[in-house]
């Protein structure tokens, strides 16, 4: 099946909110990669991935989160994941992402979690 995916960019104060929409898999992962890359190039490192509309994530999609997290944290920022649907949350948890990323129920919680100490990778 052809898949549909989009990233909607929004801001909330100093935070950049990336709203992920649809299927994040091997075909669509480059879009997400590009979106994060653009933020990093613009010096935006306090990022929140709003996964409320993310219906599916494959290992390639998970790889995008993984491949940037160190750079983001090295630059003094962080990438928070919030608003996961139960099915997608299970994928993150099985893979152990809850040890690496702050995963919160809402965007507001994600914003507050920037006060937490940055986790190691």
């Amino acid at each position: 099946m052809a898949t549909s995916f989009s990233v909607e960019r929004g801001t909330s104060g100093e935070f950049i909110i990336l709203g992920l929409n649809g299927f994040l898999d091997a075909h669509t992962a480059p879009q997400f990669e590009k979106a994060i890359q653009q933020e990093l190039e613009a010096g935006n490192v306090r990022l929140i991935a709003d996964c409320g509309q993310l219906t599916y994530i494959s290992s390639a999609g998970l790889g995008v989160f993984m491949s940037f997290i160190e750079d983001i944290r090295a630059a003094g920022g962080d990438l928070k994941i919030c608003n996961l649907t139960p099915k997608v949350a299970q994928v993150f948890e099985i893979l152990g992402f809850d040890s690496i990323f702050d995963m919160t129920p809402t965007v507001a919680d994600a914003e507050r979690s920037f006060a937490n100490p940055v986790r190691e990778v």
Partner: peptide
């Protein structure tokens, strides 16, 4: 049980989880 996928985390975090 806990455990992060291989190739993702550094040795310390991996071992701890």
């Amino acid at each position: 049980g806990g455990g992060i996928g291989l190739g993702i985390a550094g040795p310390v975090l991996f071992a701890r989880t």
